[in-house]
Design a protein around this nucleic acid. Structure first.
Length: 669
DNA sequence: GCAAGGTC
């Protein structure tokens, strides 16, 4: 019987796959690494392998690291630009030696290696690392890969019978990313730290790092800071019409929303008053619904946790990992927002019936209210959406675990419910030369809203009956004025959404980058509403540089902000929602690079997006790794040279913001 | 001393 070595990306997958392939009977052997077990069993992989003796084990993420040699460990010599062309080498870090050794030893006794890493680019690369380790033990070992996107039994058995080859292109694409991130990160970090050190005592002992993810993350924070800072309130005028019928105040909204020209508004208003009567031109009553949420991804979990659970993204992820390790929820790092058909959702719903809080709701779903979840557009082909696995009694969970578990379960049950249903009424009237509308909703069935307490469907009222053609005299018609208000600083949910949209970091690392820019003292998190005076703002005597000067007209009507006067930060006082404000250093770095004559500033997200496109090109065979590397390093070296040549601009920005030495030469913007 | 990406 031939021996087969199987290696997964993490211990939990090794155990799950071993369970499925062996039918639940395997021997467990400890290794030198506490978390890693070798599972031994027999399995028939079908032709050409036939019945085999299998050892299933795992790594714990990446097995190797890339680093520069000892001759480049000294920061003072050679200069940082050597990092663009010095040798780099792959090594197995000390904490991974035992894992690699286990694979080497097992490979010696095996004729084939089957790789069971996640079905994504990084997983393919980890597969390559596993292969290299196995080949060190047995250079003739045959290497195949299993492709699976969930750990349902049938799916795993199917993967075991349909092995493929490792995709070298994906491995090369990741190799390119690793090498670029290392060289560029090291080079610019040393450049910044060494060159800004002598600008002022404040910067003497700081580590000023650059990274392809941390800098764009900071860039978002700084960009919003300037939008708030440079916001110029504008006065607007609006016509408000109210009509009382059947004891209901019906508020009609002006179709023009608001005007920034007082004279024009007054003229239009006077025509309304002069006409005295309004005429109903359209009424419409139609069924409407509020959609249930999509299946839960990591990014969404973090956004919701920062909004509703009073946790940071990183805390939420750490708690979710603990819940996962205890078997309560599925793998928490996923981009997938659609459930695979193979997964038995009703059985998972059933497991929640014992809950005192949502058990009844789960019972209702089991009794017939169950509906298939919506299908999102994202599938990482590696993990299902986050969902509960077993019921966890609140007694066995800590406080934060309880909150996150509750959210995961409620979200899941909401996904398996019916949309909320209601009737929407719209009434349109003509008054003077103007058009006004009223909108009302009656909620008929709350459905998922009964379990998903993080959402509601209110703020809309029941409208009395109106008939087309009828005329009435409004109870109230006023010309009101107001001022546009600035947007708020970035919340963590905003920041995560921006990173997600711009491809900065991955679901697993976004929270780390947010943490990093605070650790580096580039930005600070402050509870919304607790921003006292100017003490949190950077020392920025002349912050004219960054965003757009006027927010009023251009932003009108978009999003929930920049709206009517009086809706500023006050409403959220003590909300527990944290927002990010750059420090003087953070502003200086982004502004400094922005003021240099680059086509693309290091603080903008485009460079990372470009890297992403290049990786894709390598994966699809349209580009070659070596050429991509050569080309990218050439570009970054030019950015580096230019940064050296224009270093005074960066230094001036630091003097301006950090030391408060007035507006620097070179100007703002 | 420095990056970003896996995972515990």
């Amino acid at each position: 019987m031939s021996r087969i070595l199987c290696v997964a990306e993490k211990p939990s997958i090794a155990k799950a796959v071993a369970g499925h392939l062996s039918g639940g009977t395997y021997q467990t052997h400890n290794t030198r690494e506490t978390f890693i077990k070798n599972y031994v069993f027999d399995y028939d992989f079908g032709p050409p392998w036939g019945a085999c003796s299998v050892t299933m084990t795992s790594v714990i993420g990446h097995l190797t690291g890339l680093d520069v040699g000892p001759e480049l460990k000294n920061w003072s010599y050679p200069p940082p630009e050597r990092l663009f062309d010095c040798p780099v080498m792959v090594n197995v870090p000390n904490d991974k030696k035992n894992i690699a050794k286990n694979i080497e030893e097992q490979a010696r006794r095996a004729s084939a290696l089957f790789i069971w890493t996640d079905c994504d680019r990084e997983g393919e690369h980890i597969g390559g690392e596993i292969r290299d380790a196995a080949k060190r033990g047995n250079h003739r070992i045959e290497v195949r890969r299993a492709r699976f996107s969930n750990i349902e039994r049938v799916h795993i058995l199917n993967a075991a019978r349909n092995l493929v080859n490792l995709d070298e292109r994906q491995i090369e694409a990741v190799n390119a990313r690793i090498e670029l991130d290392l060289r560029i990160g090291y080079a610019f970090t040393r450049f910044l730290t060494l060159n800004l050190r002598n600008v002022g005592p404040e910067l003497n002992d700081l580590m000023i790092s650059y990274g392809s993810c941390q800098f764009p993350t900071l860039g978002f924070v700084v960009d919003r800071y300037f939008r708030v800072k440079n916001f110029v309130p504008e006065t607007f005028w609006a016509i408000k019409v109210m009509y009382k019928r059947e004891k209901i105040d019906v508020n009609f909204h002006w179709a023009r929303h608001r005007l920034f020209d007082r004279h024009a508004a007054v003229v239009l208003y006077e025509r309304c008053i002069a006409s005295r009567h309004a005429k109903v031109t359209k009424t419409e009553e139609k069924p409407t619904k509020k959609w249930k949420p999509l299946p839960l991804t990591t990014v969404e979990l973090q956004k919701m946790a920062t909004k509703f659970l009073h946790l940071t993204g990183q805390e939420a992820l750490a708690v979710a990992e603990k819940l996962y390790n205890n078997g309560f929820i599925s793998y928490p790092r996923t981009e997938t927002d659609r459930f695979d058909k193979a997964i038995n959702l009703q059985a998972l719903v059933q497991k929640q019936i014992p809950s005192e809080q949502w058990g009844q709701f789960a019972q209702g779903l089991v009794n017939g209210a169950f509906r298939a979840p919506r299908q999102g557009r994202n599938d990482d082909k590696a993990h299902p959406p986050i969902h509960p696995i077993t019921f966890a009694s609140p007694a066995v969970l800590g406080q934060n675990e309880r909150k996150v578990y509750e959210f995961v379960v409620r979200r899941f049950l909401a996904c398996c419910s019916e949309d909320a249903k209601g009737v929407a009424t719209d009434v349109e009237i003509a008054y003077g030369d103007e058009v006004f509308t009223a909108h009302g909703v009656i909620v008929l069935e709350r459905n998922y809203l009964d379990v998903y307490k993080y959402e509601n469907w209110t703020g809309t009222a029941i409208l009395p009956k109106f008939t087309v053609g009828e005329r009435f005299e409004p109870t109230e018609a006023l010309l009101v004025d107001g001022k546009t208000t600035p947007p708020g600083y970035l919340t963590e949910a905003d920041l995560i959404a921006l990173m997600d949209a711009n491809g900065i970091g991955t679901d697993a690392t976004m929270a780390e980058h947010i943490e990093k820019i605070q650790e580096r003292q580039y930005a600070r998190a402050v509870e919304r509403g607790n921003r006292g005076g100017n003490e949190d703002a950077p020392a920025a005597p002349a912050a004219r540089g960054g965003g757009r000067g006027r927010g009023g007209r251009g932003q009108a009507g978009r999003g929930g902000r920049g709206g009517t006067a009086g809706r500023g930060g006050g409403e959220n006082r003590g909300s527990g929602i944290r927002e990010f404000i750059p420090t003087a250093l953070g502003v200086a770095l982004i502004q400094g690079f922005d003021r240099m004559s680059f086509d693309m500033s290091l603080g903008k997200p485009f460079l990372r997006k470009e890297m992403e496109l290049k990786m894709k090109a390598i994966c699809e065979g349209r580009a070659d790794k070596e050429r991509v590397l050569r080309q990218s390093l050439l570009e970054y070296r030019q950015v580096y040279n230019q940064s050296s040549a224009e270093l005074h601009i960066l230094k001036n920005a630091c003097r301006q913001y950090v030391l408060g030495h007035g507006e620097a030469a070179g100007g703002a913007g």
